[in-house]
Design a binder for these strands. Structure first.
Length: 594
RNA sequence: GCCACUGUAGCUCAGCGGUAGAGCAGCGGUUUCGUAAACCGCAGGUCAUGGGUUCAAAUCCCGUCAGUGGCUCCA
């Protein structure tokens, strides 16, 4: 439901200054204090830890013997309301480290003691008090507890202390607050609205996808979902082939020895599906790169072949932990619009530029907004030649800048094998999902001992770029379903037209019109139910069919059709042939090149 | 994997210790109807699953599976 923001008001280790909270964040953070106060009144054993404002509200993590349940929330809300009504002023207090340690030790707040010990020497330590509650906190806060706005507690969750799964699990309560009741209600309504366009709900209602408990994390694609998939898959092929890619198809199952070469066996065995046959151990591929490395290395390669752009829509499997699965956004079986580019170091910048253009073209085609993240080296775990890293990171920054793309840079977030650029898209309920990704890899060519023969007749090491634009078809389609709320643009619509007769007397011409549309390549179907036209229209609307083709006495007599659009417009009657040609033309996919 | 919650007909949900219900969808019939729901009838469920408590369990307890919201993870 909520995304942890980067601005943790208690993270003393990374920010020496006073946090610069917006008024809304200040109010939310103060609400977190009031919630902690309420919790400690109701649950005297609860120990406080941290409780920041986040993008959608606030949370507070508590150490308790028995975790909170949702039934506890109304009680806590009621107690918060009492504290708010008391209008207790927030009081800031600077104390010495010793005073603070003594205070929190005496209170048994050992998590606060641990936080205190992490504060760098010389930094001012502040307490914030209201009524009889005290918390270690940098502030700022609102004037008094009456100023925390219209609040609501939303959910409980487990969360590891300091975000580390080796640490104890704390009990987190999420809440939100807004300056006015109206804004809070608007937010809650917006959450409701978002649930209506959830791809899991629409995917079922529109008969796109299906799941079975016997195949957790693996989607069935129903006929209409399969149309979506195939349409996107073909369009992507066209786009990539027109940009100098070649397509390959590679095996799903490889001998364990391949995974030992690639390093997966050592690091990611637990996330792989492993099987055995005739005494040999095999693994289902979790990614395509090793197969592509084998293909590149299968014969001598010349510099004249580079850049070599190898596309593969192969099926991948990852044994994701059960607790992380969800709808189409996190699955165990998926397909990426994957490619590996084999390039010389000199070609990196130009390839990056082409890729950024491709990514932008694709996301503009679907009106999807994305956020760009550049991840640069972590000196502690980077491998390879630092000069190569220097140049690659500089290339990435300059190509991003040259295209005028705004991005956030995340230092130390790169993989050990090279820097990367990720593109995040937000789903209906505000969660961010990584879709497109561009990753430089200096290590894998080494592991597979890949070389090409240069102009100088000597062997050279290529650089590999892993890249996907949709990311996975599964996740991308989930986001498209939510983005369009199931009302796909014509070229993607699983059903583009449905032919509806006013009465069953018109059935013969209804069938004829449908067949003509099909022959023109339009994805058309008929509604031959005995229902009245109104009911057929209603059903087509709910199915989000772009064109309803109405046929009655007039149309039969004149050999015309009367189209109605999904957005309720009634178009003028026109000859059947004319409509079929118009629709076929309008249903063409967007161009893949200018 | 960890924390919390949920699992009743294809879908949405009611029932919450006395032995299963509605609407929609489906099927049959009547109606032949011009732009978001015609009418009548029928059928459909070992109440996720395995165990336990009880005279009696969909209802209470435990295990398992799956889903949902988070946390960790996402090469």
């Amino acid at each position: 439901m909520v995304e942890q923001s980067g601005s943790d008001a208690y993270d003393f280790s990374t920010d020496a200054g006073v946090p610069n909270l917006t008024p809304l964040e200040t109010m939310r953070h103060s609400a977190a204090h009031v919630m902690a106060h309420a919790v400690q009144r109701l649950f005297p054993g609860a120990r406080v830890t941290i409780g920041p404002a986040i993008e959608t509200g606030f949370y507070y993590d508590f150490a308790v013997d028995t975790p909170f349940t949702e039934e506890d929330l109304p009680k806590i809300e009621a107690e918060m309301a009492r504290i708010a009504a008391g209008r207790h002023p927030f009081r800031r207090e600077e104390v010495s480290r010793e005073e603070a340690l003594a205070l929190f030790s005496s209170m048994g707040e050992h998590y606060k003691v641990e936080l205190l010990q992490a504060i760098p020497p010389g930094q001012t330590i502040t307490l914030y008090r209201h009524d009889d509650f005290v918390d270690l906190c940098r502030g700022p806060h609102v004037e008094h507890t009456g100023c925390i706005g219209a609040f609501k507690l939303l959910s409980v969750a487990g969360a590891y202390w300091r975000g580390d799964s080796r640490n104890p699990m704390l009990s987190r309560i999420y809440g939100t607050t807004f300056p006015t009741k109206e804004e809070l209600d608007a937010y809650l309504r917006q959450l409701e609205e978002a649930r209506r366009r959830d791809h899991r709900k629409l995917g079922r209602e529109l008969e796109l996808i299906h799941f079975e408990p016997l195949a957790p994390g693996c989607a069935f694609w129903l006929p209409r979902g399969a149309v979506l998939w195939n349409t996107l898959s073909q369009w992507m092929r066209g786009l990539l082939l027109s940009h100098g890619y070649v397509e390959v198809r590679t095996p799903l199952i490889f001998n364990k020895r391949l995974w030992e070469i690639s390093g997966h066996w050592e690091h990611y065995q637990d996330n792989m599906f492993v099987m055995e046959a005739e005494g040999q151990v095999y693994g289902l591929k979790p990614m395509n790169c090793p197969s592509h490395m084998l293909l590149f290395g299968a014969r001598r390669r010349s510099y004249r072949e580079l850049p070599l752009r190898m596309h593969d829509q192969g099926v991948l499997h990852r044994a994701e932990p059960s607790g992380t699965l969800g709808g189409l956004t996190r699955v165990r079986q998926f397909v990426q619009d994957d490619a590996h580019l084999f390039v010389t170091p000199d070609q990196v910048a130009a390839e990056m530029d082409q890729l950024l253009g491709l990514v932008d073209r694709v996301y503009r085609t679907f009106d999807l907004r994305y956020q760009v993240k550049l991840s640069t080296r972590d000196p502690a775990k980077m491998m390879g030649d630092p000069a190569l890293w220097d140049r690659a990171e500089a290339d990435l920054r300059s190509t991003l800048a040259a295209r005028g793309m705004s991005y956030i840079e995340q230092a130390r977030e790169a993989a050990f094998y090279g820097p990367k650029i990720d593109f995040d898209v937000t789903d209906a309920i505000g969660r961010k999902w990584q879709c497109a990704t561009i990753q430089l890899d200096f290590q894998i060519p080494l592991r597979f001992d890949l070389t090409y023969v240069g102009e100088d007749n000597a062997e050279h090491r290529p650089v590999v770029i892993h890249r996907a634009i949709f990311g996975s078809f599964e996740r991308f389609i989930a986001l498209l379903i939510e983005h369009y709320a199931g009302a796909f643009p014509l070229w993607l619509s699983p059903v583009q037209a449905r032919v509806l007769g006013v009465s069953q007397r018109h059935d013969a011409y209804v069938r004829e019109a449908n067949e003509l549309l099909l022959r023109h390549g339009v994805r058309s179907e008929v509604d031959l139910s005995g229902d009245k036209l109104g009911a057929k229209i209603r059903r087509a609307q709910l199915d989000k069919v772009p064109y309803m083709v109405v046929i009655g006495d007039k149309e039969v007599a004149a050999r015309t059709v009367s189209p109605r659009t999904r957005d309720g417009r009634q178009l003028e009657a026109r000859p059947l042939e004319v409509f079929a040609r118009e629709l076929a033309a309008e249903a063409q996919p967007p161009p893949v090149a200018d």
